[in-house]
Simulated assay, not measured.
Amino acid sequence: MLVTVSGPVPRWATAGKRDQRTRPSATRFGRFTEMLARHYGTQVSAWSVWNEPNHPQFLLPQFTKRGTTREYTAAKLYRQLFQQGEAGLTKGGTRAPVLLGETAPRGTATAVAPLAFLRTALCLNAQYKKRSSCGRLKADGYAHHAYTTRGGPFFTPPANDDVTIGVLSRLNSALAKAEKAKALPSGTDVWLTEFGIQSWPDTRLGVSPQQQAEYRSISEQLAYRSGRVRMFSQYLMRDDLPRPGSEIQRYSGFESGLRGHGGDAKPSYEGFRLPLVATRGGRATTLWGVVRPTTRGTSVTIDYRNGSRGSWRRLKTDRSNTRGVWSTTTSASTSRQYRVRWTAPDGTTFTGPPTRSYRAP
C-alpha cells in the first residue's frame, strides 16, 4: 500500500488562513505525518509526500514574480514540506520508503514544469550545480505522473523540462545529475505512482478502447526498459462518473479506467493482466508481454489473425522469466493482429485483447 500525504489542508494550517493550498505550514505537516506513521505505519509499504505539488490545484503559490523573472515558489515550499514530512514519518517509526515528488508531467502558465520543480526543490541551478547551503534530501525514490497525450506513448513534449512516458530518459538524466551534485542519494528509483490512457467516450482527449489497451501496454514496456522505474501503476480502475453540462464538462474527469463508468470492462482490463506490444521493424515484428500475476516462469500462447475480422490462428508459444516478462519475434506484417492466451495454475484460461503492430520512432 502506497499512502500519499497531501494537500489541500485545513485553512488554519496555512500562513494566511484564507484558503487550503497557499503556504501550508511545514511544521504542522510534520506533526501530522508523525501521527500517521504511528497509527498506520505497519500497514504501509511506501509513503509519498504531496500529490502533484507542481500543480496549482494542490499547492500555491506556484510562482512569485521578482522584477522580470518568476521564482518557482512552490518548489521552495515543497522542500520544507518534504523535510518536515520525512522527519515526522521517521519520528513516527516508519521503516517504509519515503518518496519525493509525485510531480505532474507538464508545466503550464500556472504550473511549474517537473524538472524545473525538481531542480529548485533540490537547490540546483539550471546546470545542476547545488547551492552549498542546502543539504541532501533523505528521499528513498522519486514519484512522478508520466501521463501523455492522445498522441500516444511516443509523444515528445517540446518543453525540455516536461516528462511524459515517452521521455523518461529526461527524468533519469536529471536524477543522475542530482545524485552527482549530492542533492539525492545515489541510485534513486523512479516510482510512476499514477498513469493511465484516456479513452472514449471522451473524444476530445481520449483514444479508442483498442488504442487505450495498446498504448497502455507500450507505456508499460517503456517503463520496464527505463532502468530506474520500480513502480508502474494504473489510474483508474473505473472511469469517473459523467458530469452535468456540455460534452467537455461531461467528460472533464478521468476516462483512463480499465472499466467504463458503468462497470463494463474495456479491452485494457484484460490488457492489464496480459500486456502485449507488437513492434514492427523492417524484417521482423518483436512481440513483448507480461503475465500478471506470476512469480515464476510460465508459458504463453501467441495467436494472430489477418486483419481485424479474420479467424485466430496459433502462432507460437513462449516462456516468461520469473517476473512474467517474455519476448519473441515473428515475420513483419502490417495487417496482422496478435493476442496472448495464458492458463493460470487453477486451470482458468485468460485471453488478452487484439493488438496491432506499431513502428517505434
Rank of each mutant, 00 (worst) to 15 (best):
T64K: 14
A116L: 13
G67T: 02
W47C: 01
T27H: 08
K177I: 10
L315Q: 05
L60S: 07
V340T: 09
V325L: 10
S25V: 05
R230H: 12
L168G: 08
F32V: 01
P8L: 01
I165V: 13
R21I: 15
A26N: 09
S335I: 00
G166F: 14
R136P: 07
T294P: 05
A109Y: 02
L175V: 05
R216S: 14
P353A: 13
T4A: 01
T103D: 02
T322G: 09
T301C: 01
P105Y: 12
G7M: 11
A111C: 04
G310P: 00
L89K: 11
R228S: 13
L236I: 12
H144S: 04
A116Q: 13
T286I: 07
L100G: 06
R18A: 15
K65Q: 15
E71M: 10
G41W: 09
P53C: 12
F155R: 03
V190L: 15
T73G: 10
K138T: 13
Y142Q: 02
S208Y: 04
L205T: 09
R250P: 06
A109F: 00
S233D: 08
Q62N: 04
V207K: 05
V5D: 05
G281I: 03
K180C: 06
W50R: 07
V290M: 06
T348D: 04
G282D: 10
T351M: 08
S186R: 14
E71G: 12
Y269V: 07
L118H: 00
G88W: 12
T351G: 03
S252K: 06
G245C: 02
P345T: 08
V5F: 07
T149P: 01
F254S: 15
N125W: 04
M237P: 08
D346V: 08
V300K: 11
G166P: 08
S320P: 01
A116V: 03
P157A: 14
N54S: 11
F29S: 07
K91Y: 06
P244D: 06
F232T: 07
A75W: 00
A178N: 03
F58I: 10
K17E: 14
T295H: 13
S233I: 02
G67E: 04
K182V: 07
Q43P: 01
G7D: 12
R356C: 04
R28E: 15
P97A: 05
W326M: 09
